[in-house]
Design a protein around this nucleic acid. Structure first.
Length: 354
DNA sequence: CATTCGTGGCG
DNA sequence: TCGCCAAGAAT
């Protein structure tokens, strides 16, 4: 039937590998179960895919389980309080995802009868669902033949076709290849298979070409270029920014916190009042203390790195605050305050005074 | 097309 | 210690 290794054989080879080596994930239907007729829950696929955006499977697992336990259906999530969802997302990063998650859940309930549409174009219109996630839901949840192109697939395809064009310029060419490879039969398992391959064998550093199901047809392996692919355009260096945060606790134990504005960094998240964060070289911002109190500098400092800058935070502490000067700040009782509701940089400031 | 937007792990 | 990297989207 097959006596040569043609492009058309690549998906079949990978699916056979996936049947044996598919990783177990809380949201995934194993290939054997899928063949037996079991179908994935689109809500779970959507939730997992949003969480997996720029985030590792290992990190997502626990967050996914907590979300599913608390909000078992998209209708449950749509009915949730914003602060509860943001708090449950805290620590996962890229908080616009959580805001769009709620918007999307509410749109699915309001505009689609509580069911995710089995339609790529309609999925693409929903908040937080871009080209990758729309293709992932289409293929994995509904078994429609849409090509996924994420970081894994980019790396795998750049290698098997030995493409040296740097990313992101290579994306159109890689997408053409991805579309050509996506099979009509089992597109959902195929999508997961390519990503599993990239995550476990065709890894960024020291790929395990010796055990790769695509080692024979892979051009980069034949030519020894696999470890240097994909090429990427160089990144800009990260500047260092400085800022100050103010932590204060009333005599009854309540903490003074604020919900950050929806736009921008850590948007919609709980945080300590503080200064703007500005580049080193400019004057150190002290900002305005949120209350009249006897402020003390907390020894040590918080160091944190965001996507595009390093942050050095000075932490101030005061007990028994008097006049509240900051209109948006609110006291949160100790039994209502979960440090885990804070984004990591804010939790670091809290940890510093413990 | 470039920038903004988190965090933790790993070599 | 530090840059790289992870199942990207929105602007």
């Amino acid at each position: 039937m097959r006596d040569t290794t043609e492009t058309s054989d690549l998906p079949h080879i990978l699916l056979e590998w996936y049947d044996v080596h598919a990783r177990t994930m809380p949201w995934r239907v194993a290939p054997a179960d899928r063949k037996a007729g079991q179908t994935p829950d689109p809500y779970r696929i959507w939730l997992s895919e949003v969480m997996l955006q720029q985030t590792t499977v290992a990190t997502v697992r626990d967050y996914f389980q907590r979300f599913i336990a608390r909000w078992p259906t998209v209708a449950d999530l749509a009915a949730a309080q914003d602060a509860d969802v943001m708090g449950e997302w805290a620590g996962l990063g890229y908080y616009a995802r959580a805001r769009n998650l709620l918007k999307c859940a509410r749109a699915v309930v309001a505009d689609h009868g509580g069911q995710f549409p089995a339609d790529h174009a309609q999925l693409l219109k929903l908040p937080g669902i871009g080209p990758y996630t729309a293709a992932a839901i289409s293929s994995i949840a509904f078994d429609l033949p849409h090509a996924v192109l994420d970081g894994n697939v980019e790396r795998v395809l750049a290698r098997i076709y030995d493409i040296h064009t740097p990313l992101p310029a290579a994306k159109p060419e890689l997408m053409d290849r991805a579309i050509a490879l996506t099979p009509i039969d089992r597109p959902g398992d195929y999508a997961q298979a390519v990503m599993d391959l990239g995550a476990t064998i065709c890894t960024p550093k020291s790929p395990a070409c010796g055990i790769c199901p695509w080692r024979d047809p892979c051009l980069a392996r034949q030519r020894g270029t696999a470890p240097e692919l994909p090429k990427k355009t160089p990144k800009k260096p990260k500047p260092i920014r400085h800022g100050t945060v103010y932590l204060t606790q009333r005599d009854d134990g309540a903490w003074l916190l604020e919900t950050r504005p929806d736009k921008g960094l850590l948007g919609g998240m709980l945080g300590w009042p503080g200064s703007d964060w500005i580049d080193a070289g400019e004057a150190r911002p002290r900002g305005t203390p949120p209350a009249a109190a006897d402020w003390q500098i907390v020894p040590g400092e918080v160091r944190h790195t965001f996507t595009h800058f390093h942050l050095m935070l000075t932490v101030m502490y005061a007990a028994n605050p008097q006049d509240i000067l900051h209109p948006d700040a609110q006291f949160i009782a100790p039994d209502q305050f979960r440090p885990s509701d804070l984004p990591t940089v804010m939790r670091k400031a809290f940890d510093l005074i413990r």
